[in-house]
Structure formats: C-alpha cells, structure tokens
Design a protein around this nucleic acid. Structure first.
Length: 905
RNA sequence: GGGCGCAUAGCUCAGCGGUAGAGCGCCUGCCUUACAAGCAGGAUGUCACUGGUUCGAUCCCAGUUGUGCCCACCA
C-alpha cells in the first residue's frame, strides 16, 4: 500500500471521489492549473513527468494476488488454458533465462485469461537432487563437516532447511517479475503428493518390465560419489598423454595405446580384429601383463578398428564401456582396480594412489622397463566431466536401476509425428527426433541422499521382495530399502500431471491436463522435454502438451553466453530495480524470436524503460485533455479523418498482434505494438489531436472519446507483456469501475472497422508535413521560428487539415506584406513561405539536385524494365503495375524538381 | 567422425524472388506547456565469396571460406 510520503503517482480514480468521470487525475494534490482547454482540463501542477515503477509494481502485484485473479477454478465452465512452469532448481536464484521464459508464459496466460479462458499457470520448484545436495555439502564443507558426519537423516533435514531459505528467494523474484501464477497450487517435486506419483509410476514401470536392475559400466563421478546418466556428462577437449605400451616379449608381444595407463592394472585381454592378418598368430595366445603377475589372452573382436593405431587394443572390462562389451562377448573377468573415489585398489605398489597419480607412476614404471614405445603429449582428446562438479568421469562397473527407454521413446516420438503435439518452431523437431529415436537406456538410480528414495525393498539375499508405494516391507529381519534415490529428472518428468494431483483423479487433472503449451529452452529437450513426453504418453496415454514452444538462450549484448567465468552474468533484479520489471520484460519479449538465442544489454532495457515512460506520458497527456472511455464510440460519420484513420489502424494492429501472440512471435509482437503506440498514436495522432482539442466543440468531444478508445485498447494489447504500467494507467483511464482491473478486462476484439480512404488521407498529411519539415531543416530555420505562409491546399486531402498542418509546421497566416520567397509543391498542393530573404538557395539547390538525380536514376531503371520484353512477358501483372507506378512517380518527381530548380534560379 | 544452424548498417537482429528494414549507436538543430527517459531532420550497407537457375536473386541451388551449437563407445 502506498505511504503518504510516497511521491505522487497516478492513482486509480476510485481512490478519490471525483464527479467527472471523463477525467482521471492524481493524488492528493488540490492545486489545479487554469482551465486551458475547456471543462475537462483540471490538472494538478505537479503531476510527475516520469513513470516510477518502484512506486507501482509491488502494490499492484499484491492487489492482484489478494484479488485471487491468478487462481484457476477447476469447476468453472470456461475452457481451460494451462501452462506448468518449468520448475526452477531450488539451488539458486532466477537468472535472465528464467525471467525471459517467465515473461513469455505470463504473457500467454494473461492474454488467455483476458480472453475468457480458465487460465492456470502452475508454479513450483524442482528439488534438483544432485545439484542441491552438492550445494548443501559445500555449505557443510565450509563448516568443516561432511554429510557422512551428519548422517542421512540429519543431512536431509539440513537440505530441507536450505530449501526453505532459497526457495523463498525464488518465489520473491517471481513476484517481482509480475508472474501471474496460481500460488494456491504451488508444487515442489519432493512434496508428498508428487513423491507418491513418483513411487506409483516406478511401480507401474517395474510391473510392466520397463524398469530393471543391472550391473553395467556407468558414468561415475568420483567426487559426487554417484552414477550419472549419459546426458549429465559434458565432454570437453582436454590435454592428455597417449602412450604406446608394449605387453609381452618377443614374438608374443603386443603394442597398445592408451590415455588412461592406470587402467592396465585391470586389463584382462588384448583384442585384435578377427580378420587382421598381421595378428592371426596371436589369437588365443597368452600375453604377460607388465607390472603384474597376470597373463591375459588375445581375443578376436570385430569392434577393433585395424586401421587405428597398431590394431591391438587393451581390454579393461570393468573400467571402459567398450571393453565391457568385449568382455561380455568373450566371457572375460571383470577386474575392478579402483574404488569409488578413483583410488587404486589393485594389490601392488600402486595401491592407494589416486587415479591420476597412478597414471604417471605407471607410465614411469613402464618406461623404466623400456615398455613405453611412444609418448604423445599433449594429446588432445575428448574427456567426460560431471556436469555438476566438472570432475572427470570414471567409467565404473556397478549395479544400478535402469529404465528401458525404447518403448517409451517410441510413444513420445509418435505423439509429435502424429501431430498430437506440435513443436515450435518446427525445425527444432529434428533435434527432438534425433534424441527419442536413438535413446539409450537411462540410469535412474543415484547414490545420493537428497531425492526420492527408490521404492524397492530387498530380502536377506538381496532379492527384490516388494516395490512401493502401497506394499509394506514384510516383517522380520534382513529386509531393507534400496539406499539410492532416483535421478531428479524422473520426478520432473512427471511434472505435467503429478502437479495436478495424479495418481488421484482430481478435478484439476480432469480440467487442466493435457496442458496447452510448454515454454522452455531448446537446451533441455533431452533432459526434460523428451522425458515428460515419455511419461505423459505412457502414464496418461496422452502427451502432456499440445504445443512445445522452444525458446533460445539469453546471452549478453554481444551474443556471448552468460557465464560466471566471463563475468557477464546479470542479476535480473538489478535491472528491475533500475528500470522496472516492465522494462526488463519488454526487452526480453522484443528479443524473442522462436528458438533463437536472445542477446540482451543494459542499454536495451533502458530503451524499454523509455518506452514505458512514453506510454505513461502519452496517457498523462490524454487524461489532461479529457480522453474518456465513457459511452459508446461516436458514429464514424461524426469522426474526422484522423479519428477514422487511427481506429482503422488500431484494428489492423490488433489483428496482427493476435496473430503474433498465437504464433509465439513475441519479437514481432513487441515491435508492432511499440511502433503503433509510439509512432502512430503517441506521435501523429496525439499531435494532430492537439489542434482538435484546442478548437473544442463536437470534434474535440469525438476525438476525446476516440483517444480514450485507442489508449484503452492499446494498453490491453500491451498488458500481457508490460503488466504493471498498463494496469496503473488503465485503471486510471477507465475510472477503475467497481474495482476492475486490466488483469481481468476483456481482450480487445477487432470491430472490423477499416477506412482505407482515411488512411490514405493521413498518409498524405504525414508526407506533406515531413516534406516541409525537411525543407525547414535544410533552410536552417529554427524549429520554433514562426514563418508566414500561404497554403494553397484547395482540391487536396490537406484542405481539412490546414490548421493542424500550420501548427505542426509553425506556419503563420500570410499577413500584411507577405512575400513568398519560397514555394514548394507538396502532395499536390503548394506551400508558399515568406522567408524574408533568409532562404539558403545553395542548400536548397543541392538538395533538389540530389533528389533529381535519384529520380532520374529511378526513371532509367523502371524505363529499362518496362521495355524489357522478357520481363513484360513473364512477370506477374501486379509487379509490372508496380514498376509502372514507380516510373510515373519518377516522372512526376522530375517535373516537380525541375520546376523547383527553375524557380530557384 | 556425424548432424544442424548462421554469415544483412558501427552493435544486436528482422526480412527471404520484384527499388534494402528496426532498435540501439552516430551527425545536425531544438528545454515546441504529455514526455530531453523527449521532438524534428539526416548519414550509413558490392545483403561473406564463387558459380548456377530465373526476365529479375539478399532471398532458390551447388561449392568455398568463416562461425556457432548438438550428437558420438576417437583405444
């Protein structure tokens, strides 16, 4: 609520008891300026000339929430419109990427709400298993403690505490952004209901044979001490060392290459290609493995590429995924030589060494034996890193739970193929298909504490005895629950229906599933989008979204990725503080070309702030001049051409805007609205209206109503993108009838009114005014300088606008002693000016000459085209017509310019 | 190694077969009583390169170069 000391801002009129509804005014100011323009103009003297977002935003947001406008009703008869938020990780705070996507989602739901849909934007957060656990462990580390010190239960409690604190920060940021989410439906992936959904799906998949347990090579993070899935591994080029090692001696020796020499301790075979003639004699032989007392066989396996290196490969089944497969094929022993932290466990001199220490120690030892034949250093190769902590991944043999992906992915792919779900923009669909059509099985168990514990209980022999959620573990000793938790993406994959109450058949689920659109970045197609599609089609038998609208990533003003190491990360709060939430939102929307990255810089936010301020001041002007939305719009027959023109344009823009909204073309939308509002309404229409208002009478009355209409509709069109400033102004403009708010105002509709004649007429006025302005500027006339002029406008569209033209151009009537020293033909009329000898003949001649040259060039070009028979024969008629038109225009220009030049001489 | 995308004004990007556009920046002049967070006027581009298709190409096709991203079990 505003405090009395707050700077004056526009307030809703209902805060004051004002009789005249045609006027909306501010605050507690009682001073009124002289009535300059008639009975409607009672204006406080100190009306602020700048929009102050900080004064408005918090207050409005609280009002919206209190009014319950963002709360959806599952029982309403209105058609549903649903968006579930991509739940931000509780780990942190929202960045510009969130602000960007939230702006789009908010705009979509706000518009649909105004259109009469039961609009639900469901908020929530993701527990982000590994990420959050790492953060909390880090925090503990600073206290000199580890999670093991706390124990599982205490540690999980600690994470919940953390969630309370940081989750709140995220919610606060969403409020600042103006997110119109339904707070009564806020969800968290670790909530009881969502946990139950997780267990229920797990059970169903287990029963359907889609979840299984298997020992395989997985990506292991020796720092996080957990398995991670393929897509959680980030590959980057690292400098390493490729060494060629000689195993065995004499005839029966082989040379293998490796970048991970330490794994040789776990070698259990040498492999060569079965058809490799060089090595036929070796197949089946035993080779002495250096540094150990073991001998290993040479096996033939077609996986080996004879062209690569020596064509002889060391095989370490327990520490390399390919070798694991070879090992399986040849029934080799799986020898694990490292523990979960990457420390060597194999007996011998290297035991207890870290894997990297062991690597150099082993190479050194082999070198001493003369077994290192070649060393390439640096050897740049691609190495997997944990996406959470950047530690080098260690492939590790381990027992894990898996999801059998193929059947699920098939359904997920089909949903897009058969059109039940549309991917937007369409060319992003290929990325989606690439993934769902080639997905490997998914490791879902994680050796973490923070997350959904796997709902499986084992008996004393390690056998699975039951799978939750409804089965109780049997009584007796020796039963225990699986200690692992599920991959965080398992629960977020259920988000579109778990948040609506599934597995219960809730009214929410019936009303709001499937959701309408998913707005998210193309970077998580694999992590999240594909998985939601899999779970949705599998569990609900219906894909979770009708449309997947993919956004680009927010980048800095030079298109560079925002990252801490570049130091170019911006906290959205900083810009919101400085320029207002609307400014940030408008900027983000302006950059939103579907699927394309969005660069953003502070200057651009500033420019949007300027636009918000422009809207503010234009509305201020309108209010001062008595713009109103009271009563019906006057009949077109009563309107001046300016009124008909702007209403005609309004409807055109409205239709355009609707198209852009429906097509997620926010950049084009923002551009169209800014252009219409700023250039056409705030500039031309307002300027032209000034004359009308000054003159008064019925014409002024009509214009006041039209101006009110234009603003009313324009504000509503803008509201989904810039909710705050539009709300503040709209409630003022409309008098805030019965507590109404633009949030629940009806979306404007195209009335169908168009007036091509008026549009043409105003175009002529604009052209004429611009032309004379240019002349004035060329002549060096001060903009404020009044110039006596004689306007011969008879027979032109300008005749009805003489007064406005004179005012816009600072032209005085030709009085006594008028002497035309310059006269220029504009739009079929002639404007004669008395410049009292001040005319700059040279400047004008230069300009005319330049224009003449351009016109002659145009004439030559069009003339050539029109005598080109091939062109005439093949070009479509409308194109030929256009060229003819251009030629005629060029001829007219030449005649006019020649005449003007003659007159100058 | 595969796949996809992009190269247009100083910057960031629209346009995608018929005379090159926007925002920001830049130059000039203005405190014109809604707004200097503003107003008026202005300048700026062999639309990466080379060929091809076409009456006509920034736009379609092929190749070249540069650049970005994604995928991959490169010992």
């Amino acid at each position: 609520m505003p405090s009395p000391s707050a700077a004056p801002v526009l307030k809703p009129i209902r805060d004051r008891d004002i009789g005249a509804r045609t006027l909306a005014v501010v605050t507690d100011n009682t001073q009124q300026s002289p009535d300059a323009h008639g009975p409607h103009s009672a204006i406080p003297a100190d009306l602020p000339t700048q929009y102050a977002p900080a004064e408005v935003e918090g207050k409005l947001y609280e009002r919206w929430v209190e009014a319950g406008w963002f709360e959806a009703d599952a029982k309403s008869g209105k058609p549903p419109y649903t968006i579930v938020i991509p739940p931000p990780n509780v780990t942190g705070s929202l960045h510009l990427g969130h602000a960007f996507q939230h702006t789009l989602m908010d705009a979509l739901t706000r518009r649909k709400r105004m259109q009469g849909y039961e609009a639900l934007w469901l908020p929530g957060m993701d527990h982000a298993g590994i990420a959050t656990q790492n953060k909390v462990e880090q925090q503990l580390g600073e206290e000199g403690r580890s999670r093991q010190d706390l124990g599982r239960e205490a540690f999980v409690d600690r994470v919940w505490q953390w969630k309370q604190e940081y989750g709140g920060r995220i919610l606060g940021q969403m409020r600042r952004l103006g997110d119109g989410v339904d707070w009564s439906r806020e969800r968290f992936t670790m909530d009881e209901g969502l946990s139950r959904a997780v267990q229920t799906v797990f059970k169903k998949m287990y029963d359907d044979g889609l979840i299984y347990r298997a020992e395989r090579i997985i990506n292991w993070c020796p720092r996080c001490l957990t398995a991670i899935s393929d897509i959680e591994v980030e590959y980057q080029d690292d400098d390493g060392e490729l060494v060629q090692l000689k195993y065995g001696d004499g005839e029966e020796s082989v040379v293998v290459a490796t970048t991970r020499a330490e794994t040789m301790l776990g070698d259990t075979a040498i492999a060569v290609h079965p058809d490799d003639e060089r090595y036929q004699h070796l197949i089946g032989k035993q080779i002495k493995l250096p540094l150990t007392d073991r001998t290993i066989p040479v096996v033939a396996d077609s996986h080996v590429d004879p062209e690569f290196g020596t064509g002889q490969v060391k095989v370490t089944p327990a520490h390399d995924p390919n070798d694991f497969e070879i090992g399986r094929r040849h029934d080799l022993p799986m020898l694990t030589v490292m523990d979960e932290r990457g420390v060597i466990t194999a007996h011998g001199p290297f035991q207890g060494l870290d894997r990297f220490e062991a690597r150099s120690a082993i190479v050194a030892a082999l070198r001493e034996q003369g077994r290192v034949l070649q060393e390439k250093r640096p050897y740049v190769h691609s190495v997997g890193h944990c996406s959470r902590c950047k530690t080098t991944i260690e492939p590790r043999l381990s027992m894990q739970w898996w999801v059998k992906v193929a059947p699920l992915a098939k359904k997920a792919g089909d949903a897009v193929r058969d059109g039940r779900t549309t991917i937007h923009p369409a060319d992003m669909a290929s990325r989606y298909f690439d993934w769902v059509d080639n997905m490997h099985d998914w490791t879902i168990s994680r050796q973490l504490w923070w997350g959904h514990r796997i709902p499986v209980w084992y008996g004393p022999e390690g056998e699975v005895v039951c799978v939750g959620p409804d089965e109780q573990p049997p009584a007796g000793e020796g039963w225990h629950q699986d200690p692992d938790v599920l991959d965080t993406w398992f629960s977020s994959g259920l988000w579109p229906f778990s948040t609506l109450g599934w597995p219960n058949e809730t009214p929410d689920l019936a009303k709001f599933y499937a959701t309408d659109v998913l707005v998210t970045g193309y970077d998580i197609i694999f992590f999240w989008v594909a998985r939601m599609m899999m779970f949705g089609t599998y569990v609900m038998d219906e894909p979770p979204f009708h449309t997947i609208a993919l956004t680009g990533l927010v980048r800095d003003e030079h298109g560079k990725k925002m990252s801490k190491s570049f130091g170019n990360v911006v906290d959205p709060l900083d810009w919101m503080d400085a320029y207002g939430s609307d400014a940030l939102r408008f900027t983000l929307a302006s950059g939103a070309n579907p699927g394309t990255d969005v660069p953003i810089g502070e200057d651009w936010v500033k420019a949007s702030r300027n636009f918000a301020n422009k809207i503010w001041n234009a509305t201020r002007f309108a209010l001062m001049n008595g713009a109103t939305v009271e009563g019906a719009l006057p009949d077109a027959s009563e309107m001046a051409a300016t009124d008909r023109w702007i209403l005609s344009r309004l409807n055109t823009v409205l239709a355009e805007a609707d198209g852009y909204y429906e097509d997620y073309q926010f950049a084009k939308l923002a551009d169209a609205l800014r252009h219409f509002a700023w250039d056409e309404v705030f500039d031309w229409y307002v300027e032209l209206s000034k004359t009308t208002f000054a003159r008064g009478g019925r014409a002024a009355e009509v214009s006041r109503r039209v101006l009110g209409e234009i603003l009313d509709v324009t504000l509503r069109l803008l509201h989904p993108i810039v909710p705050f400033v539009t709300e503040e102004l709209w409630t003022t403009l409309t008098g805030g009838e019965s507590g109404e708010s633009i949030v629940v105002a009806a979306w404007p509709q195209d009335s169908g009114f168009r007036d091509a004649a008026a549009e043409a007429e105003i175009a002529t006025v604009q052209q004429a005014v611009t032309e004379v302005r240019r002349f004035r500027a060329d002549q060096g006339l001060q903009p404020g300088q009044k110039v006596p002029a004689d306007l011969a406008l008879a027979g032109t569209p300008l005749v009805a606008h003489e007064e406005a033209v004179r005012q816009l151009l600072r032209l005085q009537p030709a009085g006594e002693g008028f002497q035309a020293t310059a006269s220029l033909p504009v739009a079929g009329a002639t404007v004669s000016l008395d410049l009292s000898g001040a005319i700059d003949v040279e400047a004008e001649r230069k300009r005319l000459t330049k224009d003449l040259a351009a016109a002659e060039k145009e004439l030559a070009q069009t003339g050539a085209k029109l005598t080109n028979e091939a062109f005439l024969a093949k070009a479509p008629e409308h194109v030929v017509d256009r060229i003819r038109g251009r030629k005629a225009a060029a001829e007219a220009d030449i005649a006019r310019l020649t005449q003007q030049l003659d007159r100058l001489a």
